[in-house]
């Protein structure tokens, strides 16, 4: 079909306003597709620039090698220390942060008076808005010396410091998402439980919380995503040495491995940094997929 036929069929000649309307709709469609295009570009660029180095180094050696010495005369590119550090660090942050966030959310959703809730919402908003470098700065000046003195280790810039900072940083999203899940539980559930003689606290924890289960899981997974992707704050407190992770050792995460060497990298080292970013991206994509499953699962119910 050629253009003139198309114009005739759509009736643009007799009705130029329709042409304008259709053009505007097309513009909006293009604007809508910018997000899709961005995701594609990011994925393609990461895969194209990240894959070659993995094959040059050897996938097994890259993923399971325990030694990272990118600038040595005989360089080694094993990123297992980074992967494990990211997993341990995230797990630690979840273990500390989620219980605190969960109990705070239950209190805010069910027990807090309106005034307390309003003040707390502001607090959580501020906590979420504080730039990560500020967390890093406070961590550097309080947490790092504190850990050194408290546990009597030579340097306080350790995995532990990073875990504490990450735990604080995931708090706002854990609280907010659990809070809205808890608030969405129908009031009838609680009334039924209260009518059967359960106390209010029992009702909240035995009825409301199980009913909001999928929302709370979402909060945890979201927290995992936040923690695994954080770079600057933990770069400032974790000491940044490519050790295998241990709670009182200076460590390097997937994110900080990329951030700390990018500015002076070249050749295979630079390519390997892109491969690390690709691995990180895969982790994030898995987390996104889990979030999606949780979301559609929640809707079906």
């Amino acid at each position: 079909m050629n253009l003139s036929q198309y114009i005739a069929e759509k009736g643009y000649k007799d009705n130029p306003r329709r042409l304008v309307e259709d053009l505007i709709q097309l513009v909006f469609l293009i604007l809508g597709l910018v997000a899709v295009g961005s995701v594609l570009v990011i994925t393609v660029y990461l895969v194209v620039s990240g894959l070659p180095a993995i094959f040059k180094i050897g996938p097994v050696e890259f993923l399971f090698g325990t030694r990272w010495a990118s600038t040595a005369s005989e360089p080694a590119f094993g990123i297992l220390p980074f992967i494990l550090t990211s997993i341990y660090g995230t797990a630690g942050a979840i273990i500390i942060g989620v219980p605190i966030g969960f109990f705070a959310a239950v209190f805010l959703a069910k027990m807090a008076p309106k005034k307390v809730r309003e003040v707390m919402e502001l607090c959580i908003g501020v906590l979420a808005g504080i730039p990560s470098v500020v967390y890093g700065l406070v961590g550097m000046t309080i947490l790092v010396p504190g850990i050194r003195i408290l546990f009597n280790v030579p340097d306080g810039a350790t995995l532990l410091a990073a875990i504490v900072v990450l735990a604080v940083m995931i708090l706002p999203s854990v609280i907010n998402v659990s809070l809205s899940a808890l608030q969405a539980v129908p009031r009838e559930f609680e009334e039924a439980s209260l009518a059967l003689g359960a106390t209010s606290t029992e009702t909240y924890f035995r009825v409301t919380v199980p009913a909001a289960k999928s929302g709370i899981f979402t909060a945890i997974v979201l927290g995992i995503g936040r923690a695994i992707g954080e770079a600057m704050a933990i770069m400032m407190v974790a000491g940044n040495v490519a050790n295998m992770p241990s709670i009182f050792k200076s460590v390097r995460f997937l994110t900080t491995a990329v951030a700390s060497e990018m500015s002076y990298s070249s050749g295979l080292q630079r390519e390997a940094l892109f491969s690390i970013a690709l691995v990180l991206f895969l982790f994030i994509m898995i987390i996104n997929a889990i979030l999606n499953v949780l979301k559609t699962g929640g809707k079906r119910k």
Partner: peptide
């Protein structure tokens, strides 16, 4: 919205 900022920086 789930992609970490360090990856945005790289890309």
């Amino acid at each position: 919205s789930g992609i970490p900022s360090i990856i945005y920086g790289l890309v």
